[in-house]
Design a protein around this nucleic acid. Structure first.
Lengths: 324, 324
DNA sequence: TTGTATGCGTTATCAT
DNA sequence: ATGATAACGCATACAA
């Protein structure tokens, strides 16, 4: 691989001059610029971002830690985050933590070694102290670790409220929420809180089904939903995430319950699965693109030393389709 | 951020010694090792992979270019690729090309600047020459660019054959294939070839629907499927990809055609959507995990200067569920 | 307008 | 068993 030296040699100038035309800094004669440009073309020269990083003490890299990029919600986040970051000159180092704390710590360590300029966390399995101790630009997305760590989320409380109201408004008399493990202290817990509050205040009976700690092990969903309907055959309204909603709809079909006639289902996320299902899913839309942009802006803001909002809560929206 | 110098100073030794304990190279007295280790802990020292990269002329980075990581198939590939790469000490730089050739060229350029050790391409919109000219370890996944560029794919011909045979075996009399644009010269074209051959040889009437060039614009799918059934109301068997299958099933429901009774549907990929749909999708399973592992092995093999197979074609499997 | 010298953090080579 | 020094590729301060 040719270096700046080779270019300089070939163009008959010094590396300083080449560096100048490369960065358009200082005065360079038109002829020199041309010579250098030619040499670069001829050698197919590519400046080394590695050397630059070492010198500038910044890598233009942002670490992205997600539970699993194959999950529809996180996949879509990843996609938007990558695009936004790229538009600002940052590249994304992808990490799938699988919600495994060992892996997560390992990934964080790796990102530090690679001198990433910041981290976007869509996972969090470690103790708050470990994150605070990072002393590096960081933002959480779809999660809130601590008041001192900037976060970008959607309004889960409001989402829970909208969903519950909609189900009740459509005539449901017994609701169920099918959520992730409450032990994980994730944001969806807020959904559960407002779900309960609203159902209670309207005098509607309601139950909860939790997954175990391995939230993304879809294979457990079928059994859980079956048990739900076995234990509570009178449930006629379910609030859950988009992916889980798919399993709820499957179970209903299997049990001979029509959706939305017998059981109404409201999802959360409005990921692409929502419009793939049949009936098409009524769901709470998280503004994933905006969330992604804000998350990227929030890390980059910190990198630049600008003040950034500690908490960004974006509005959600009820998207009425066919399932409720 | 503390550097190796700070550690050396604090431990009362030179950087050479610190480097030694860091890499477990040469002889170090137990006491020195301890002193240095302590200093590292106290300073919370993290060695710079950037400096290492500059010296070693390798970054431990692999570029991954995909059309879009939010697509179920590519999301799953990305996930496995990242895991495999990480297990071998490589990190993934994520790029979404959106099948845009400008972006793809731009990304390739960026990856070269960052001195990635290799590239895994799940997209290809450029001319063969541009790829050949890269002169860097590269492998394509789910695509075949040129005989000289290593590729990892599933057996699309066999997949098309299995799907077509299954549909005919289940009694279909008129088949349709709903595929991406044939102009893109992607592998699915092979599916089309064997689909046609098998249908023809068994004397079964068959038609083709193509998407436009923007393969991942799902919003066009609905109209295309509707037109298919309008033009050919007698179609009773459809072969397509998993995501498109979701739209086919939706259309059938809308048109009052029962799946699988009136219309049988076979997908391709066996991505997570396949088991989310209702009826659960009968599909051709691509071994995504194995494909990912092979792709990673193939780039790393090249990086290490080992000989690698130019073509890896993995077997597919018909997974019979409910849609056909 | 261009060149010289220095340093970014690390490891390899060659001493001692 | 440990230290001094050069080199990786680049950009900058300072000279000319």
């Amino acid at each position: 691989m040719p270096t700046i030296k080779d270019v300089a040699l070939r163009a008959g100038v010094t590396v300083t001059t080449v560096s100048r035309v490369l960065n358009n800094r200082g005065y360079i004669s038109a002829m020199t610029r041309e010579k250098v440009g030619l040499a670069m073309k001829e050698l197919d020269y590519v400046p080394s971002e590695v050397a630059r990083s070492l010198l500038r003490q910044r890598s233009s890299l942002i670490g992205l830690i997600l539970p699993a990029v194959n999950h529809p919600f996180f996949g879509e986040l990843a996609m938007h985050i990558e695009r936004c970051a790229y538009e600002s000159g940052y590249k994304i180092l992808l990490c799938n933590s699988q919600l495994d704390s060992i892996k997560e710590r390992d990934y964080i360590d790796m990102l530090k070694r690679h001198k990433v300029d910041g981290i976007i966390m869509g996972s969090h399995t470690l103790d708050v102290h470990e994150y605070l101790h990072l002393s590096m630009p960081i933002v959480t997305i779809d999660r809130k670790i601590d008041g001192r760590i900037p976060s970008v989320t959607s309004d889960n409380r409001q989402g829970g409220l909208l969903a519950t109201r909609h189900l009740i408004g459509r005539g449901c008399r017994k609701l169920a929420m099918f959520g992730g493990s409450l032990q994980l202290e994730l944001l969806p817990n807020q959904r559960y809180t407002s779900f309960c509050e609203e159902a209670t205040s309207q005098g509607i009976d309601h139950v909860l089904v939790e997954t175990d700690l391995d939230v993304f092990d879809f294979s457990q969903y079928t059994a859980l939903v079956d048990k739900l309907f076995a234990d509570h055959p009178d449930v006629d309204g379910v609030f859950t995430s988009d992916v889980k909603a798919a399993y709820v709809i499957q179970a209903c079909r299997r049990l001979g319950k029509a959706v939305p006639e017998d059981v109404k289902v409201v999802g959360y996320d409005d990921s692409q699965v929502a419009s793939l299902l049949m009936p098409r899913l009524t769901t709470i839309r998280q503004p994933m693109e905006t969330m992604s942009r804000r998350a990227v802006e929030t890390v980059i803001g910190q990198i630049r030393g600008e003040p950034v909002p500690l908490e960004t809560v974006l509005p959600v929206e009820l998207v009425v389709r066919e399932s409720a």
